[in-house]
């Protein structure tokens, strides 16, 4: 198969530093304002009020979070709003030591999928854990799958109806 591999040209850092390669630059500016709609709109409004809510489907009896106006299993509209607790269980977590551009972080972030109490089993949301340590080892010592956690909310006057109205979840 060797004849069918094209000898494409790999560039090295020096090629740029020594000005042998020309590039054009364009910033990618995409500006969007997403309509949150009925389900997520209410979800965000309730966050501002310091509450987590889900939607229940009468047929499969699941309580879903993030909430949606349709049940993807039954393909029918969901029926009722359900007030959830702001506590839950860590389904999985990571200790992330780099930012999106691969810069190293001084203090690692701890993203987690958290199953929310009051929703059906396994219904998690993405958020971060806090008050779990400053270093990899500390965090791995304190956090495990199955850890019970509770939301730490922003003070009411600082909330804006966003997922970040919860600052993080901490162990309970």
């Amino acid at each position: 198969m060797e004849p069918w591999v094209y000898p494409s040209i790999a560039l090295k850092q020096e090629d740029f530093e020594e000005g042998r390669i020309r590039t054009t630059r364009t910033p990618l500016r995409g500006e969007y304002a997403w309509d949150a709609g009925v389900a997520v709109g209410r979800f965000l409004a309730e966050l501002k009020a310091g509450r987590l809510v889900g939607r229940r489907c009468r047929v499969c009896r699941r309580v879903m979070v993030p909430p949606r106006m349709f049940c993807e299993q039954c393909f029918r509209p969901t029926d009722t709003w359900v007030l959830l607790q702001d506590t839950g269980t860590v389904l999985t977590f990571s200790v992330c030591t780099v930012a999106w551009d691969m810069r190293r972080l001084e203090v690692p972030e701890v993203p987690a999928v958290i199953a929310i109490d009051g929703a059906s089993p396994g219904m998690g949301i993405l958020h971060k854990l806090g008050e779990v340590g400053q270093t990899n080892d500390e965090i791995l010592d304190r956090v495990h799958i199955g850890l019970r956690v509770q939301a730490v909310w922003k003070p009411p006057h600082q909330r804006e109806g966003a997922i970040t109205d919860i600052l993080y979840f901490r162990p309970v």
């Binding site: 997403w34 309509d35 949150a36 709609g37 009925v38 949606r68 349709f70 299993q73 039954c74 509209p77």
Partner: peptide
């Protein structure tokens, strides 16, 4: 503009009509 519906909800409305029109249960 359609600020009352998310794109998901807009799709659900159109899909519900189409499946009902065809007389099928998508699941």
């Amino acid at each position: 503009i359609s600020p009352d519906l998310s794109f998901r909800e807009m799709m659900f409305e159109a899909a519900t009509k189409a499946y009902s029109d065809a007389g099928i249960d998508p699941r």
